[in-house]
Every structure is written in structure tokens, then in C-alpha cells.
Amino acid sequence: MNPETRQQIEDFLYTEARLLDQRDYEQWVALFAEDGIYWIPAGDEADPNESVALIYDNKKRLEERLIRIGSNRFWAQQPATQTCRIVGNVVATEAPGDEIEVQSRLIMTVLRRDRKELLSGVCDFRLRQEDDRYLIVNKTVRLIEREQHFDNLTFLI
């Protein structure tokens, strides 16, 4: 992979992370391809059809999340969760069909009311290049905390 492409991919990941931290969810959902999938497994599973996930969203359901986020009665986000994330250890490889596989590590501080937590994990992206920009075909976040009891995961990771 040439250094320029690699730089573009890193920039894309940083932008994606920034949109989430800024809670600019509309822009963030727009990064997903029409057939995009956003998956946060609840265990070690490989097949989302056989195992319940924390999140397994297609684009339609991601757009439904925007309805909740826009609602003035989305109680679990009143007050909103603050996040600050660091993305690193980026490894990108070319995949068939003009797609790129990218793996990164994520560490994020999560703050809501007076409760602060740390979430960490591995993010696997499949990106597709379309009209000079990247679209997310798949984003899978394997949290090291995935088998913990969460009290609120209604912010996005």
C-alpha cells in the first residue's frame, strides 16, 4: 500500500473518531455505505446470526438511532455521555473488490454524570472507496469489556 493511501486511511479513522467524540452522529452515520454494518459483539463469536450482540446495526437501524438522538425524551442520553478516544496501531491491508481492511486499537474515556469509565478494544473496518472518499462497509468493535455488565452503552463506540 502506498504511503499516500495509508495516510488517507489514517485521516479517515481520525475523522471518524472525532465525529463520535463530538457527537456529530448524522455525519458519522453518513460514513456508512448503504449496505454497511456496525457490530459490537457481546462475546467471542464469529457469526452474528448465531449470537446476540451488544449492537448489530444495518444502515436503517443506524438511522433510527438518529431519531432517538434527536428526541428530547432520550432519557439515557440526558445528560449526554462525553467521550474522548485515542485511535492507534493502525494496520491496513488491501482486500478484494477495491476494498481495504483496517485494524486499529481504541482506548476511550467515557464520562456520564460523575461516573468515569475506560473502554478499550480492537476495531476492524472494511472500507470501500467510492467517488474519492471512503465508506464503511463494516465496523466491528471487539471490546475487552464485552462480557462485563454495562449500565449504558447508548453512546456509540
Binding site: 450482540a53 432517538r68 449500565d151 452503552l153 447508548t154
Partner: peptide, 30 residues
């Protein structure tokens, strides 16, 4: 199989900690 896949997706829709249902209940508990 598609019946059970739909049941799993329905669970994620309303009952998990990132769903559209349970987190608002949990917020009320808090």
C-alpha cells in the same frame, strides 16, 4: 434459521444495554 435470527435482532432492538428500550429503564432506576 431466519426466525431465530429475527429473535436475536429483536432482542438487540429493545433489551440490550445499547438498545432502544432497556437503557431508558436503567436510567429511571438510577
Amino acid at each position: 434459521e431466519e426466525i431465530n435470527v429475527a429473535r436475536v435482532r429483536a432482542h438487540e432492538d429493545f433489551y440490550g444495554p445499547a438498545s432502544f428500550g432497556a437503557p431508558d429503564d436503567i436510567e429511571m432506576f438510577k
